[in-house]
Nucleic acid binder design. Structure first.
Lengths: 212, 212
DNA sequence: GATTTAAGCGAACAGATGTACGCTAATTTA
DNA sequence: TAAATTAGCGTACATCTGTTCGCTTAAATC
């Protein structure tokens, strides 16, 4: 039968990926994982690792990619919830925080590799966040009609604030997280309100960079 | 003569600290430094390390503390520049970016350990950033008189955006960094403008969290 | 059914790591 | 000046690391 071997190979590849994810925690970053640790957790001989990945860096990039996928599912979920009524800002923040709580290790990975030691990792995470931001910018622009460039700047700021809130949440209790959500919502509302005001000012003054 | 030995000890302690800072780079995080590497760079026997620090974690905390000090000097500088005229926002962003460019490794350390694997490190960095944010909040409040809590929320958002811009700048060319500065300034202006608007709305509606 | 392919394994190796221990030599104390 | 303290060093050891190599065994191909 054809595809039997390929299927089994895919299976152990998954086991390796899952083992790596499982070992991530507040105390363990991907960079601190050794090849042997991952294979041990996966129940596979160290040397077999090379049948699936060229090295740990390759495995890491796979993890980042999968995390990006999870992130996109999150976006889809948030969009659905917004469409079925409710404040866009509140819904987005709450959905994101839910995601962080349910995927702490996935989020930690993205968070850490964003400023990690591998340029490829940093680029991969930046790409995922940019995708996230672009989607939000489109949404904002479709609602406000202030122009793509402007919406993009606003969306970028919002995404950064939400991501940062997620990062802070990781070290917090449930009660503290609730407060954090409210704070973040206020920050996004400021940006929202400010977008309208600043846009007008921006148009009146033209694109000058005159001081003050 | 008394204090000779103590002085020399302090000296080699400095050599260790400097060696560690020197080894930080885009490719090397503090977590990836080994005790032996640091002592090698410092020109000191591995075992002598223990005469100065209990372990690498202790050295790391010292680095974070020193980085915090540098950050406070930066704040002082920004304050002075603002007082001697010019836009507060522009001056702050430009001064911060200058700091990042001149202290890339210091900034990288703070950036990485903010989401690192040591709770103590994370707490130490959070403390430094909170200090930074608190100062800005005081300044905002003294100018706008909108109340400490409100100013704090706004200041927090601003600090996050500026820090994040600093992080992005690390992987950028000089030209790209210039554009980033302008973008960040716009984001802060949005927050500034939005603060005024949102504050009014906030007061009129009361502290309700009614949807939409 | 015979031959080829390839996933998985165990043994082995060189290199690096943190740290214990005891020594030396210089400074400090008495 | 004699005794005590201590920064710095070299040796040593157990442990862990990534990776090579050749083998087995089962699936795929012919």
């Amino acid at each position: 039968m054809s595809g039997d071997r390929a299927r089994k190979k895919e299976q152990t590849r998954r086991v390796l990926i899952d083992a790596a994810f499982r070992q991530l925690s507040a105390e363990r970053s991907f960079a601190s994982l050794s090849l042997r640790e991952v294979t041990r957790e996966a129940g596979i001989a160290p040397t077999s690792f090379y049948r699936h990945f060229q090295n740990m860096e390759a495995l890491g990039l796979t993890l980042v990619d999968e995390s990006g996928l999870t992130l996109r599912q999150l976006m889809r979920q948030a969009r659905q919830r917004i469409e079925s009524g409710g404040s866009a800002i509140r819904t987005s923040v709450e959905t994101f925080m839910e995601f962080v709580s349910e995927n702490e290790n996935v989020f930690r990975l993205l968070l850490r590799e964003r400023s990690g030691t591998s340029r490829d990792f940093r680029a991969a995470v930046a790409r995922e966040i940019a995708f996230f931001s672009l989607e939000l910018a489109d949404y904002i622009d479709s609602v406000t009609q202030r122009g793509h460039e402007f919406s993009r700047i606003q969306a970028d700021a919002m995404v950064i604030l939400v991501f940062n809130a997620g990062a802070e949440a990781l070290d917090m209790s449930t009660a503290q997280r609730k407060k954090l959500v409210e704070k973040t919502i206020r920050q996004l509302r400021m940006l929202d309100a400010g977008g309208a005001v600043y846009m007008k000012r921006f148009q009146n003054l033209g694109n000058s960079n005159s001081g003050e």
